[in-house]
Amino acid sequence: MEGLTTEIVKRIAADTIFGKPLVTNVYRSVIVEAIVATALPDWNWCSADYASCDFIHPDGTRLEVKQSAMRQTWVTKAPSKPSWDIAARTGFWENGTDWTERAGRNADVYVLGLHDLVDDNADHRDPAQWQFFVLSEHRLPSTKRLGLATAMRLVQPVGCSDLAGAVRKALSERRFVYGTGDLQRSSAW
């Protein structure tokens, strides 16, 4: 097509995906990760296909972002029940091509985003409408999913303006174990 440029295609695609207040599950993670990236400017946003985590700090600390929304893009009889995938993995991909077997969770800190508005004001793109449960990996239960009630028992949620402080607090709570001759993080990573 004459006159069709990469910029036009990007704009049309972005408007199609993010141009409405409710964003489908497939793309909502990008919204939440963008909020986290803004709140944590010192972290490298590295999520991509086959990435082992969503953010890496210059010191090597890994952070995983999960999100859940109670109002969906499709019609439901009742609000969705929030939950997050926190399952341990059997390994991870390095550089998208090399598989490393290593059982455990893939991050030191988990940021669990919750969008709990269910009325017509719900807008997944609005950072002020999100709450975040920030947990050190060792505080997560040994389950595959974490529900809202359990998240609330483990930690109080924070808004995006308090996200950096909550991540610092979670990092300070990491457990350390003594390895052969040095101090190591208890995380498998």
Rank of each mutant, 00 (worst) to 15 (best):
M1W: 13
V9F: 14
A13V: 15
T16M: 03
P21T: 02
P21M: 09
V23M: 06
Y27G: 01
V32Q: 01
V32L: 08
A34S: 14
A34W: 11
I35W: 12
T38I: 06
T38D: 11
A39S: 15
P41R: 04
D42Y: 04
D42E: 13
A48C: 08
C53D: 06
H57Q: 06
D59Y: 11
G60L: 02
R62G: 03
K66W: 11
Q67C: 14
Q67Y: 09
S68T: 13
V75E: 06
K77Q: 14
P79D: 05
S80Y: 07
K81W: 13
P82M: 07
S83V: 09
I86L: 08
A88E: 15
R89T: 02
G91E: 00
W93R: 07
N95A: 07
G96E: 13
A107I: 04
H115A: 11
D116Y: 00
L117C: 09
D120M: 03
A122L: 04
R125C: 08
D126R: 14
A128N: 09
Q129K: 02
F132T: 01
F132V: 06
F133A: 10
S136N: 15
E137R: 05
E137F: 08
E137G: 03
E137K: 02
S142V: 11
T143H: 10
R145W: 12
L146S: 12
G147R: 09
T150A: 00
M152R: 03
M152V: 04
M152P: 02
V155W: 05
Q156Y: 07
Q156W: 00
V158P: 09
V158A: 00
G159V: 13
S161G: 10
A164S: 14
A166H: 10
K169C: 06
S172L: 05
E173K: 11
R175D: 14
F176L: 11
F176E: 15
V177D: 09
Y178E: 15
Y178N: 14
G179L: 01
T180Y: 12
T180D: 01
R185A: 12
S187I: 02
A188Y: 05
